[in-house]
Design a protein around this nucleic acid. Structure first.
Lengths: 122, 122
DNA sequence: TATACATATGATTATGTGTTCATGTATTAA
DNA sequence: TTAATACATGAACACATAATCATATGTATA
């Protein structure tokens, strides 16, 4: 309990407007996906061309397993999508999702979570 | 080295267009700040009112130290700014930075890093 | 079918991150 | 100046995460 001053009303109203924990966690999870330079680099690369795992592995100078693990995270976030061609699996950006997430990432996620987030300020 | 097919040219050109590691790491660092639900919640709260540490601590039902540590990260990212009033330190969103980061978060960071990121698609 | 290639995935390990505890610093008031 | 309040910060610990290794799955080809 804070004693620094009486702001029970203010805190109460903010508390009511606060999205529930699940929503907050989900917002954070979405951002977490972009919070790794390996994944950022993969997104950059796929921005320019559809690439298979071996290409990405070579490009990033990381072993194939590491790339596959990261692609799994990107797939789960619907940021990339796979396309099999024979033995290879080509990855490309899932445009629909990446543009909406990148564009709306914050405003939408935050707003959808029920905040008073000011869209116009964006 | 990949043998799945010959794409040396493609990989080479993507490699050249790729921002350097420092830039990629910096992009990821920026997103990392939003990748924690406690920080998201603090941002939500400060979206509605300027609050001191005790208020945030009470609101989030977390001890004061945890809040201070998180505020330090948000300060370092220029997302919030402190204002001392007597014994209390009131935090508010650093509008200038938060709007630019939220709005441009991706496009600016990525573009500034030298990619061919398609701004119009945003 | 057997073999090789491309990718995925479970286990392990190293490193990073968030919270707590203890303590330090700054400000106010007695 | 001393005590109390508000906040910050370093250390320790628990937990999450990313890379690696080993291995499994899926596909093409001999």
């Amino acid at each position: 309990m804070s004693n620094c001053c009486d702001a029970a009303d203010l805190i109460g109203s903010i508390e009511k407007a606060m999205p529930d924990d699940d929503a907050l966690i989900s917002v954070a999870e979405n951002f977490k996906v972009f919070g790794d330079s390996t994944r950022i680099k993969i997104i950059f690369a796929l921005e320019q061309a559809e690439l298979c795992v071996s290409h990405l592995s070579e490009l990033m100078k990381m072993n194939q397993s590491a790339i596959s693990h990261q692609l799994r995270i990107l797939r789960a976030a619907k940021l990339v999508k796979p396309r099999r061609d024979g033995k290879n699996i080509y990855y490309s950006l899932d445009d629909e999702h990446i543009s909406s997430i990148i564009r709306l990432g914050l405003e939408h996620a935050l707003e959808a979570a029920g905040s008073n987030y000011n869209e116009e300020a964006l």
